[in-house]
C-alpha cells in the first residue's frame, strides 16, 4: 500500500505573529494532517493556528544557486539607514 503523503506544518504561536515552520508529518488527507499536527506539535499550547501543505507542493530555491540569487543584495548598503549621514543635533531621523 502506498504510504500517506508528507505534509509540512506551520504554526502560529499567538495572534499577531507569523506562522512558522514546525516540522512535517504523514497524513491521509489535509484534515487528518491538522489533527495530527495538533497532537504532534501543539501538546503544550504552542499554537492557536495551524497550516498544513503537501511537501510536494513546495517549490524551494536551489542552494547551489545561492550566489546568483542572494548576492545582488549584498553590495547595496544604501538600502540601510546607517548608510546616510545625519547632521549633528538633528532629531527624528
Amino acid at each position: 500500500m502506498k504510504s500517506w503523503p508528507l505534509y509540512e506544518v506551520f504554526i502560529r504561536s499567538k495572534a499577531g505573529l507569523h506562522h512558522k515552520h514546525a516540522g512535517s508529518l504523514h497524513a491521509a488527507d489535509p484534515e487528518m494532517a491538522i489533527e495530527n499536527a495538533r497532537d504532534v506539535y501543539c501538546r503544550r499550547n504552542e499554537g492557536n493556528s495551524i497550516w498544513v501543505v503537501l511537501s510536494s507542493d513546495i517549490t524551494a530555491s536551489n542552494p547551489a544557486e545561492n550566489e546568483e540569487l542572494f548576492d545582488p543584495a549584498e553590495d547595496k548598503i544604501y538600502r540601510h539607514p546607517t548608510f546616510y549621514e545625519v547632521p549633528e543635533g538633528v532629531k527624528h531621523l
Binding site: S3, L6, G23, S24, L25, H26, D39, V40, Y41, R43
Partner: peptide, 26 residues
C-alpha cells in the same frame, strides 16, 4: 501518559528529520 505521548511525538519529529535526508518513512 503525558510522558509516553511525548515519546511518540519525539519519535515523529525524528522520523521527519530523517526523511529530509532522502529516505522514506516506510
Amino acid at each position: 501518559l503525558a510522558k509516553v505521548q511525548d515519546e511518540a511525538g519525539h519519535g515523529l519529529y525524528l522520523y521527519s528529520a530523517t526523511e529530509t535526508l532522502g529516505i522514506e518513512r516506510d
